[in-house]
Computed example of a mutant assay.
Amino acid sequence: MHQVTLGDGLRVSAIGFGGMALSRVYGGIAPEEALATLHAAVDAGLTFIDTADVYGERPEGATGPAGTNEELVGRLLRDRREEVQLATKFGILDAAAGQTRGDAEYVRSACEASLRRLKIDTIDLYYMHRRELSRPIEETVAAMADLVSEGKVRHLGLSEVTADELRAAQAVHPIAAVQSEWSLWSRDVERQVVPTAAELGVGFVPYSPLGRGFLTGTLTREDVAGSMREGQERFTGEAFEANQQVVDVARGVADDLGATPAQVALAWLLAKGVEFGLGVAPIPGTRSSDRVVENAAAADLRLTPEQVARLDAAADLVVGGRNLHAGRPEWVSAGRE
């Protein structure tokens, strides 16, 4: 697979792999099966692997980041470290409660804990997962920059930041990537964040590029039940059926190309990167090795301007807002712009 250049000279596979999908948020998976999926991703060229300290399940009564997803990825890295561009994150203490932390002491301790779980010496891309809103972002990024100076981290990233926050962070230390939700049905970042990233030479890593599975055209109501999608506006009631219109647009383009809706949705993001003039590397997650191969093939799919325009128009068909985590608009960048 070809590589793309994000910011600060970081080169990664054009399509990465989102490790959160292997931590039961979309259903159970055995550890050995999860590890096999990670190996399949690297075999297919998806060498940009994304995890976070908060992904996974905490033991009953425990507090703070679970770390089990990092431990899983660490098993992959034991044999394939030189093949992988590894990204992980810190900053979320409890997503359901909206609890975050970004002081220097915590930044350091979180990084060192991640390194221990991953069993590596250096993290390729270290993200601030969410801001501690009462603390200046410059303070947190300065603490992250110290980790670069010490060789614990190679590049810095930020998740769900506004354009102004990105500018403030970039003034402290070069930022390699912003990670935020971006897909055919979640395009709010195009208003301010994406253009600012392009202006500053920062790359973009779209999470949930397949709309938490909806844009694959294979999701059922049974898949939604009991997963993190349950209760989110776009997956409930009449919205679930209405949003099939978005999938129908992607499927129409896919039929023209002999591709799948998922491949078209990923190829659209790569095309938008060209349009906006910045490096883009979406990170779809899956529990299936077959889906890994399908997603990888999207890197070679080329859309015509007319097809991109058709897909752009699908945003007008979306019913319901994107996930705001327990109704907290400030949890995502659009809620603070």
Score class of each variant (00 low, 15 high):
E241L: 05
E112C: 02
H173L: 00
E32C: 00
V253H: 07
A299Y: 09
L317G: 08
G335N: 09
L125F: 13
D188C: 03
W182D: 00
T63E: 14
A36R: 15
R131W: 01
K119L: 08
L184M: 15
S227Q: 04
D50T: 13
H173F: 03
R328N: 10
L257A: 13
N295C: 04
F276H: 15
L278D: 05
S289D: 05
D8T: 11
I283T: 12
S134T: 14
T5M: 11
R117K: 13
Q232L: 08
L35M: 01
L324T: 14
D256L: 13
A315G: 01
P136Y: 04
D300Q: 14
R58Q: 14
G27W: 09
R287V: 08
G98K: 09
S114N: 06
A168F: 02
A177P: 00
L303A: 03
K119C: 09
P329V: 00
M128I: 12
A97G: 15
F90Y: 15
L93S: 07
P261F: 01
L38M: 12
E105Y: 00
E139M: 13
Q3H: 14
R101Q: 08
I29G: 00
L269A: 05
E71S: 15
V161F: 09
A96S: 14
V107Q: 01
L86K: 14
G335W: 15
R80G: 13
E275D: 15
A36E: 15
R229A: 10
Q307Y: 07
A265K: 05
G226W: 04
G279L: 10
G237E: 08
D124L: 10
A163Y: 06
P284V: 03
P206N: 09
L147I: 12
R322Q: 06
Q99A: 15
R130Y: 05
G252F: 11
T68V: 05
D8H: 13
E165F: 06
R117T: 05
E60K: 09
V141A: 08
A169R: 09
A315I: 12
L22A: 01
L115A: 02
L93Q: 14
G237L: 07
L10P: 08
P195V: 00
L311P: 05
L156R: 02
V107R: 03
A254P: 10
H39P: 00
Y126M: 10
V264D: 04
A145H: 13
G56P: 00
L133Q: 13
V224I: 10
N69H: 04
V253W: 03
R135P: 00
G320K: 08
V161A: 11
Y127I: 00
A198E: 08
L38F: 09
L166Y: 04
P174T: 10
A262H: 07
S159L: 06
A104P: 05
A52I: 03
D256W: 01
R191Y: 03
A113M: 04
